[in-house]
Computed example of a mutant assay.
Amino acid sequence: MNTPTVALLTDFGLKDNYVGIMKAVIDGICPGVQLVDLCHEVPPQNLLSGAYLLSSAAPYLKEGTILMGVVDPGVGSTRRSVAIDTGSFVCVGPDNGLFDMVLKKYSPNRVVVLDNPEFHLPKVSATFHGRDIFAPVSGHLAAGANLETLGTHLDPADLVRLPPSAPFLHNERIECHVIHVDRFGNLITNLSDRELTDWLDGARPRIDLDGERVPLMKTFASVPKRRPLAYFGSSGQLEIAVRDGSAARHFGAAQGQTVGVEKE
Rank of each mutant, 00 (worst) to 15 (best):
A126V: 13
V112E: 09
V113W: 04
S107E: 14
I133A: 06
L121V: 12
R110A: 10
L159R: 04
D132H: 10
P117K: 10
R161A: 11
N146R: 14
G144W: 03
H140M: 05
V113T: 11
D155W: 12
L141G: 01
G151R: 03
P164K: 09
I174Q: 06
C91A: 08
A157D: 10
L98S: 06
V113P: 04
V124E: 05
C91Q: 03
A143K: 15
L121A: 09
C176W: 10
A145I: 09
V92H: 01
F119N: 06
L98Y: 11
L169G: 03
V124I: 15
N109M: 14
D158C: 12
A126I: 14
R161I: 04
G97L: 03
H170D: 13
V124T: 13
D132S: 08
L159H: 06
E172M: 11
S125A: 12
E118T: 13
Y106Q: 00
G151L: 05
K105G: 07
N96C: 07
A145N: 06
L121E: 11
G144M: 05
D95I: 02
P117Q: 08
L162R: 03
A142I: 08
L169K: 05
P167K: 03
G139C: 10
A135Q: 03
H153N: 12
F128H: 08
F119I: 09
A143R: 14
S125M: 10
V113L: 09
N171H: 14
G139A: 07
F89G: 01
G97D: 04
L103I: 01
H120L: 13
V160P: 01
L159S: 03
E175T: 15
D132F: 08
C91D: 01
A166N: 06
F134V: 01
L141K: 04
S125E: 12
S88Y: 10
I174G: 01
N116C: 09
A135Y: 02
D155G: 08
I174V: 14
V112K: 08
V124Y: 07
G144H: 04
H153R: 12
L103W: 02
L154E: 05
D155R: 11
N116H: 10
C176Q: 08
V102H: 00
P108Y: 02
D115A: 04
N171G: 05
T127F: 06
H140C: 05
R173K: 15
L121R: 14
G151Y: 03
S165F: 15
H129T: 07
H170R: 13
T149Q: 11
A143P: 06
E175P: 08
L103K: 00
L141P: 02
P94M: 02
E172I: 13
R131T: 07
R173C: 15
T152D: 11
L114N: 00
N146P: 05
F119E: 03
